[in-house]
């Protein structure tokens, strides 16, 4: 007897993971939520059939989306996380003593509830006194904020479904407005590899370039995600992700990571030629 979870990465490619058992399943107002246990990837979270994170490789994603901007921004005190109801980003953020306040805005309260119960390895820091949870539309939340944050982390799902609004120009524009004059926005930027994902990736980059004076992309290798090659966006009003990287300052914090190092930080911004081309095609359009 074999149980397999399969996710279509394209209409012609799928990734299958052998499953021990289904731990939980429910349908929230926004999406279907499933939790499975597997021999290879440990416990994993699935939304509407799409793998969100696995116990084995979630550290890569969460470290890369959090520590890259915080090794650049010299003085981040107020942080906004959009999405990220699993708590992985919060877990990394609370390692910074000088962060004073974190707002987490997740549209689906059910996701957070399920993660608190079944994914303690990510949902472990929601009760930190600096964290405020808001269960509402991210686009709506950020609309009323002005000059309020040093860092915004957009930890969204894919741009098809409830997360679609977080890949729009109006959202990035509202984030720009919500950031202070030296603020940074980092976002989950999809994969450049398969054709459909590449288009979404390119569109997101175009809209960020239109909204921020500095917009770079960096990469990581995440085995459970389509193609395993994943991008993050680094958009900033002032700081450059490499020129303003302060390795000494970050290393002095003594944060222990499984993937991120300040050396890897520098390498992550050197992206493959085909990705460079994909992105530069929209950087100077009209």
């Amino acid at each position: 007897m074999e149980y397999w979870f399969s996710e279509m990465h394209t209409p012609n490619v799928k990734l299958s993971i052998r499953v021990d058992k289904q731990v939980y399943s429910c349908k929230s107002e926004f999406q279907r939520i499933d939790v499975f246990d597997s021999p290879e990837f440990g416990r994993f979270l699935v939304l509407d059939g799409y793998m969100m994170l696995t116990e084995k490789d979630e550290f890569i994603y969460h470290e890369m989306i959090t520590h890259v901007p915080l090794a650049v921004h010299p003085n981040a005190k107020d942080v906004l996380v959009i999405g990220g109801g699993d708590g992985g980003v919060i877990r990394e953020l609370v390692k910074y003593d000088d962060i004073e306040h974190i707002d987490l805005v997740e549209i689906d309260e059910e996701v957070t509830r399920v993660c608190r119960e079944y994914l303690p390895f990510t949902a472990c820091a929601f009760d930190d006194p600096r964290v405020s949870l808001h269960f509402e539309d991210g686009l709506k939340f950020v609309r009323s904020k002005k000059d309020a944050y040093d860092l915004i982390i957009v930890d969204s799902t894919d741009p098809f479904g409830p997360g679609e609004g977080l890949f729009t120009r109006e959202f990035y524009g509202n984030c720009y407005k919500a950031l202070r004059s030296d603020g940074i926005m980092v976002n989950q930027h999809e994969s450049p590899f398969y054709a459909e994902d590449a288009i979404a990736c390119q569109r997101a980059h175009k809209r960020i370039v239109e909204s921020f004076p500095k917009a770079k992309v960096y990469q990581a290798h995440i085995p459970s995600y389509p193609s395993g090659h994943w991008l993050f966006g680094f958009a900033s009003k002032k700081y450059h992700p490499l020129r303003d990287l302060d390795e000494k300052r970050w290393n002095a914090r003594g944060i222990k990571c499984g993937y991120y190092t300040t050396t890897l930080h520098k390498g992550a911004f050197y992206i493959p030629a085909y990705v460079e081309e994909l992105l530069s095609n929209v950087e100077h359009a009209d």
């Binding site: 609309r143 679609e164 609004g165 109006e170």
Partner: peptide, 15 residues
């Protein structure tokens, strides 16, 4: 969610 996009965009156009 589409209503939020419209409102967000109108806010941006004004800004």
């Amino acid at each position: 969610r589409e209503i939020e996009r419209l409102i967000g965009a109108l806010a941006e156009i004004r800004r």
